[in-house]
Design a protein around this nucleic acid. Structure first.
Length: 878
RNA sequence: GCCGGGAUGGCGGAACUGGUAGACGCGCUGGACUCAAAAUCCAGUAGUGGUGACACUGUGGGAGUUCGAUUCUCCCUCCCGGCACCA
């Protein structure tokens, strides 16, 4: 064993050992308990950033821990390879998206390997290959046959100057990010997946996901947004088509004073044909991005259409307004407005001078002041005809029943969840396998013609998708009638690929089917790890997809991920300069020199290239678009993979967001050096007699004699108790709490204790051997390379990855006495040492005898004494 | 705007079920070793007062529950994530 720790050598040795022995090639083995550990696969953006290192180290730690506990582990890796950044890179660098993507994958794969992750690389997949996306196309056509896929118009962000569809990310303050033109909403036909058909099940099954964080389940519940209420049908004066709405408060129906419809609603469009001012208002409403945030924070505005709705019970005529906050794709594109009992309606009514009619009073008789705000609580109905005097809850039922009997409405459950729009008017994605025939309509591509391959060698001019200008791609005969037809040139949302990759990893080599029986051995994923930013969209779509695959007979389980760990984001300060047009040009933290105040806070930064200052933005998620990712490459090259892994695990608990700073890495490196030195000192003290090597040659055999627990002295016994207490804590931290930072801290404490334990006796060395063996195993999931080397140095014939996690020796944990804290009125005043089995009166007496405690009690009267066994005594005085 | 989180020394964080606030690490200060530096080792390190034992204050701000609150409840401030076309 070398005296000095050489990370680079140790790491390449360990990695070539794992390679040589195919250590991480997962084999289906129904006789063994399987453990499928998966970290969300990366988008190949170019190079790894710190968020990746954190994410994949977490996964690797859990996979390696499971292996030490005897599980049959699968841990694969692949690439979420379709997406917008490849198109941006294509425009910026004149390189085809495919070429750019594959080059990034190659680079990032090398970086992954350098970090020593225990992946089964034989299963690697990239979603941009036809071998992968053909099955997604295949499933889509199955779902079309089942009626779970349909086409309808939906709005997109449209730049009228560039004549192109923009992603939400490309709309900045309502304007196109390239040309600054005000963006418009444009309705175009798009494909949808009927996720709403699974809304009830997606909601209900959250209750069975015991291994998921409560906050994620809450977010998904709120997103699905199940609400009970009623559908109400209002007549429209002079029209045959009624106005249908949904409300969660049918009890307030008698308080409706006006109706509000979306700017795209047929009634609005009709009214605008003869009303110039209204037409102008509708045009203005188009200049709004498609995001809900933009919708909810804009000024609420409206305009009277001049049309009248007819109240379904009273028959009263109600004005119909167009309102910019009502959206066509939510529900029916229309709402009933009750200003007295809904705050948004109240504000709108105040603004436009509409009547406010109270129909609910508070149940406890407190006066309601509608001059100040709406009264939104439930209560008792007033001024509501035959429903007057009924409490809200009962009134909801009564009114719904009344409406149903007259065919003017009914009880209904409504979901906030909307169907999933999967069409993208972009190039770098999986082609949607549909053909549009003038005669037959939309026709799915037959199985024998799949996959529909995306042409890769394309020229990219930045305006629209290249395949929309390639007749050789889109011209094709109709599979049904044979007439000339056109392929769909839109591609799938990239969430499609990431919704089923976890299943494909179980059988990536199958060229005949999407999945096979192997999926049922490995699925569901036992541990899924990924950023909290995916709490809703990705995780909900993946759950939906899993149920779709189940219902076409591909998998047997109901849910894809039994345990979920949502890692906090790695965040960093953003740095930028303002361009000539006022737009922010983001600068990478690696390209600047920073200055800090004496408290270590960032106060300024200058660009290395020109020495001139750059501006400080907020602290945000590390991302490509904000250019605030920290490149871990230099860190790995300088200190090694183990130090990088150790530091990212030590810096914060996994679920917490982590603001990156380079400080502290040194401490992780120092710890590994101390560990190495400790083992080296122990090993170089020589082998036991049965080790038989006085000449210092490499050899097999024990380094220390067998441990005889009964022969230990007090100091040795104390150390052994510390060792087993540490093992107990670390095991719990790994298995239950997943707080690897505290596990590392405990091992650091143990190492500090081992440094102080200077005992060259035979039993002292035997104890040191046990301690070092355990330390190496406890650290092996986090720093696998150095552990590999140290395990061998400690005289083991087998590799540490094949070791078994040790068990706590309960007998080592016993102690004769315990320290209790003594408080007076809740403040710490003393400590006492009591026997483990001490009785309460004896403990009280001992506590009251403490000198400092008596000082604080003085002549005051003792009201009571609280004894918390094993913890403390609190004396309460008057 | 809505939904979900977060805030603890100079810094990252610990305190797991309401029971010793600040484990572990970084940084800093002093010392040892060295011609010197680096590395390493030892000691100290929340603030204020005190030579000291120790005392008082202290977990974003305000109120409350409790013998006892970083932890539970209510209100507020700021920060972060998501909001359906970034992934």
């Amino acid at each position: 064993m070398d005296e000095i720790y050489h990370a680079a050598r140790v790491e390449s040795d360990a990695q070539s050992f794992w390679d040589r022995h195919q250590c991480f090639a997962a084999k289906d083995d129904p006789t063994r308990e399987k453990y499928y550990c998966l970290a969300m696969f990366p988008y190949p953006s170019g190079k790894l950033h710190m968020g990746h290192v954190r994410n994949y180290t977490l996964g690797d730690v859990m996979a390696r821990f499971a292996r030490l506990r005897g599980k049959n582990v699968l841990q694969p890796m692949g690439w979420d390879a379709f997406g917008l950044p490849a198109e941006n890179a294509a425009i910026a660098n004149q390189v085809a998206p495919a070429q750019w993507t594959y080059a990034n994958i190659d680079h990032m794969r090398t970086q992954f390997k350098r970090l020593g992750f225990a992946y089964d690389w034989r299963r690697e997949l990239a979603t941009c290959t036809p071998q992968y996306y053909r099955w997604e196309q295949w499933l889509f056509t199955r779902l079309y046959e089942k009626g779970l896929v349909y086409k309808k118009t939906a709005p997109v962000n449209w730049c009228p100057k560039d004549l192109t569809v923009l992603a939400n990310e490309q709309v900045i303050d309502g304007r196109c990010w390239r040309c600054d033109t005000s963006v418009e909403r444009k309705e175009i036909p798009q494909w949808f997946m009927r996720i709403t058909a699974y809304a009830e099940e997606l909601l209900a099954d959250l209750n069975r996901l015991d291994g998921w964080p409560e906050q994620v389940k809450t977010m998904q519940r709120n997103w699905i947004g199940r609400s009970e209420g009623a559908e109400v049908i209002f007549g429209v004066q002079g029209k045959s088509t009624p106005l249908k709405i949904f409300t969660t408060r049918p009890d307030t129906l008698m308080g409706v004073t006006y109706m509000a419809v979306a700017p795209e609603h047929p009634l609005a469009l009709e009214a605008a044909r003869t009303n110039v001012k209204l037409a102008a208002f509708l045009a203005e409403c188009k200049h709004l991005a498609t995001t809900e945030a933009a919708l909810e924070t804009q000024e609420k505005r409206g305009m009277d259409t001049g049309m009248q709705a007819l109240h379904p019970i009273s028959g009263a005529a109600l004005p119909i307004f167009v309102a910019n906050f009502v959206l066509m794709e939510y529900g029916e594109g229309a709402v009933m407005s009750v200003p007295a009992h809904d705050q948004r309606d109240w504000e709108f009514a105040k603004k436009y001078g509409l009547p406010v009619k109270q129909v609910i009073r508070s149940a406890d008789g407190v006066d309601v002041n509608l001059g100040a705000a709406a009264f939104t609580e439930k209560g008792v109905l007033v001024d509501s005809g035959e429903f007057t005097g009924i409490p809200s809850l009962a009134a909801c039922d009564a009114i719904a029943t009344y409406l149903q009997q007259r065919a003017r409405g009914q009880k209904r459950v409504n979901f906030r969840l909307r169907d999933w729009g999967v069409s993208r008017q972009r190039y770098w994605g999986a082609p949607i396998p549909m053909i549009n025939c003038v005669k037959c309509g939309a026709v799915p591509v037959p199985d024998k013609d799949l996959p529909v391959v995306l042409p890769e060698g394309v020229a990219f001019d930045g305006v629209g998708s290249p395949i929309k200008k390639m007749p050789e791609f889109y011209r094709t005969p109709c599979p049904k009638c044979g007439a000339a037809a056109e392929r769909e040139t839109d591609t799938f949302d990239t969430f499609m690929e990431s919704s089923w990759y976890f299943a494909r990893f179980t059988c990536p080599d199958n060229t005949q089917a999407m999945l096979d029986e192997r999926a049922n051995y490995w699925l569901p994923v036992d541990q899924y790890i990924g950023g909290i930013e995916h709490a809703i969209l990705h995780l909900l779509y993946a759950r939906f997809y899993h149920k779709l695959m189940r219902d076409v007979g591909l998998v047997k389980s109901d849910e894809p991920f039994s345990h979920l760990l949502t890692q906090g984001m790695v965040v960093a300060t953003t740095l930028y300069r303002e361009g000539a047009d006022g737009k922010k040009i983001y600068v990478n933290p690696g390209d600047v020199d920073v200055s800090r105040d004496d408290r270590g806070r960032l106060v300024g930064a200058t660009l290395k290239a020109d020495g001139a200052p750059v501006l400080l933005g907020g602290v945000e998620k590390m991302s490509k678009s904000k250019n605030n990712g920290v490149d871990p490459q230099a860190l790995i090259e300088h200190y090694g993979a183990d130090t990088a892994r150790l530091f990212t695990m030590f810096a914060a608990p996994p679920e917490q967001s982590l603001e990156w700073s380079d400080a502290g890495v040194e401490g992780a490196a120092r710890f590994l050096k101390r560990l190495w030195k400790l083992v080296h000192t122990h090993v170089s003290a020589g082998r036991t007699s049965d080790g038989k090597d006085a000449g210092g040659r490499a050899m097999q055999g024990a380094i220390a004699e067998a441990l005889d627990i009964s022969a230990l002295d007090d100091t040795q016994r104390t150390l052994r108790r510390t060792l087993h207490e540490t093992l107990e804590k670390v095991t719990d931290d790994y298995a239950r709490r997943r707080t690897f930072n505290t596990a590392i801290a405990s091992v650091m404490e143990l190492i500090n204790a081992l440094y102080k334990f200077d005992d060259r006796s035979a039993q002292g060395r035997a104890l040191m051997q046990e301690a070092l063996d355990y330390v190496v195993i406890m650290l092996a999931p986090i720093v696998p390379h150095i552990s590999h080397a140290l395990w061998q140095a400690l005289g083991h014939d087998t590799a540490v990855i094949d070791a078994r996690w040790p068990s706590v020796d309960a007998s080592a944990l016993t102690r004769a006495s315990i320290e209790l804290v003594v408080q007076v009125n809740g403040k710490l005043r003393g400590r006492i040492e009591v026997a483990l089995d001490a009785k309460q009166p004896d403990i009280e007496a001992q506590a009251l005898a403490d000198e400092n405690v008596r000082r604080f009690i003085a002549d005051k009267q003792i009201k009571k004494v609280i004894v918390v066994p094993g913890k403390l005594v609190n004396v309460v005085v008057a």
